[in-house]
Design a protein around this nucleic acid. Sequence first.
DNA 1: AGTGTATCCTGCAGGC
DNA 2: TGCCTGCAGGATACAC
Length: 281
Amino acid sequence: MPELPEAETIVKGLSRGLRGQQIAGVDVVRPDVLREPRRAFVDKVRGRTIRRVARRGKNVVLELDGDRVLAVNLGMTGRLLAVRAPDARAADAGHPAVRFVLRSGEALVFDDVRRFGAVECLSRDQWSARSARMGPEPLSPELTSAVLYRRLSVSRAPVRSWLLDQRNLAGVGNIYANEALFRAGIHPATPARRLEPEDVGRLHRALRHVLRRAIQAGGTTVRDYRNADGGEGSYARELLVYGREGEPCVRCGAAIERVVFGGRSAFHCPRCQARRRSKDG
DNA sequence: AGTGTATCCTGCAGGC
DNA sequence: TGCCTGCAGGATACAC
C-alpha cells in the first residue's frame, strides 16, 4: 500500500529523468483508472512538458506546462515505472494501465493490478482545491505537536481512523499509522480527543521518525509496492507490529494482536499499548 | 460527527 | 491436485 514514504521514493526516482521531458503520446490501456473520458484526458496531456515531479500526501504530482497537473493516486497496487529502453517489455510484464511515451523514446508507465489507483489531469486551480481539502504534510514544520493536539482534540474517532483520514493528515496509511501508534504506546482504538498532550507529543515524534526512516529505506514492500525502477523498499524489515499478529512484541514479548475496525486491521501490543477506557462526555 | 457496509479489482492463501 | 471462498484494502458513497 503506497503511502507517503513510497510516493516520496517514487518521486525521487522519477524526478531527474522526467523533468523537462515532453509527453509525445498517451496510451490508455485501462480507461477505468481515469476519471474522465479517455479522449479528453489524452487531449489534455499529449504534447505537454513535465516541469516538475512532486508529492502531496500519497499522490505523485507531475506539474505540466500550460497550468496542468497530472495527479496520480497509486491506490493499493499502483506503480509508476520509468521505462528507459524505447521498447522495453519489462513494464508490460505487469498490468499496464496508462503508458506515457516521451519524446526521448523513454516512457512512464502507470501499472496497477487492482486498478484502485487513479490518474487525473487537472487544471492548476482544480489541483489546488483538491490539495486544500487534504490535511497538512506530517513532515512539514508547520505540523507541530501543538497543532496536532488541537486537531485531534476535536475528534471522537479512534486515533488510528483519524490518522488514516487524508483530510486530517496527508499521506499516512495503515502501515505507518500502526507503527507510529506502537512507538508512541497508544492503543489504535483510543478516541482522538482522549489523548493527552504528552501522548500527542510522542505520537508526533513517532510519526516523523517512522516516516523519515521509511523514506531512507526506500519505502515498505509487503507485496506489491515497487519504486520507479521496479525495486523493492526495505522498511518491511523494520516493521514492529504491522502484519505481525501472534508474534512477540519486540519490547515486552507479549503476542501482537490484530483487531479490525473501520474496515481495516489494526496491529498492536496489548501490553505496551494498553487500552484506555473511553469515557463519555 | 461518527460507524458500518458496499463498491471497485485481482492475486493469493487456506480449507477441504 | 484443484476448486472455491474469503481476504487484502485506499478512497468514496451511502444509510443510519
